[in-house]
Amino acid sequence: MTHLHATRLGALSTLATAALMTAISGAQAQSLPPLPDSIKSAGLLKAGVRCDQPPYGYKDETGKFAGVETDMAIQIATWAFGSADKIELTCVTAENRIPQLNGKKVDLLIATLGVTPERARVVDFSKPYRWGGSDMLVAKDSPIKKLDDVAGKTVIMLKGSTQAKWFEDTMPKVESLRLNTASDALQSLKQGRGDAYTHDAATLIVIAAKDPSLRLVGESFAVSDAAVGVRKNEAAWLAYVDAALDRMKAEGLYAKWVDKWVPADIRPFYTDAFTKPKPTAR
């Protein structure tokens, strides 16, 4: 290829790109900041997502990564590397997600990560992309009707979850059974190893909708923002993620993903979480 050809082609492609941008984004066109070299050099996005938290991050019947937060990660990979395939998804749990990030196994967490001061000490948070409250799941015929009813009872929770911290700080007298995964917790609740199972309301709603033997207590507490987590001192990468989140919002992608992953009957809760302001609660 000659020099002349190259220049001409380059000019052509610049023109084409400009036209395309105008066509798809119009007034909303948002350019992302440059991708930092530390991320770019990997050639793909290493993202930590949940695998047991529908509808945010989970694996579908065929074992494929699924959920809104998973789609968010894929979207960032698409913008950053130009292809939805340029991503390496890792299942993280509540307790291992921050070690996975700081141990550089992943470059970001979109993993139901609530913003807390303790976590802010060890990771940097992006802008919040939704809020999440906590709730409790109990057996259908359980006498537990409100949050205070669990005093003196055993509550199942996940290690390192927002709820574990919240109960320790707010209701330290509550006995806790702390497990590693949501499925362990659910199993233990159904086997009567605890009186209630507390977790993100968003997770529990899905379970309660599917399992008629269980009931949501329905009192919201420990409402916090969920944000993307990145390592400390990676300002350029954090800026890139923030910009990407803005763009998702601007392009209305959240609503689209909620529609894609959440059944219609429980959809409003999730739409609110991504689009409405955070409510107040204990």
């Binding site: 307790e95 921050i98 060890v122 290690k159 390192g160 979850s161 320790e168 702390r178 497990l179």
Partner: peptide, 23 residues
């Protein structure tokens, strides 16, 4: 046994790490 939530030594460590991140 930390995997079933028994609060033995490793459980305590992992549990605290998950909250305080003093790995």
């Amino acid at each position: 046994l930390q995997a079933i939530g028994l609060a033995e030594l490793t459980f305590v460590a992992i549990d605290r790490i998950s909250m305080d991140f003093r790995t």
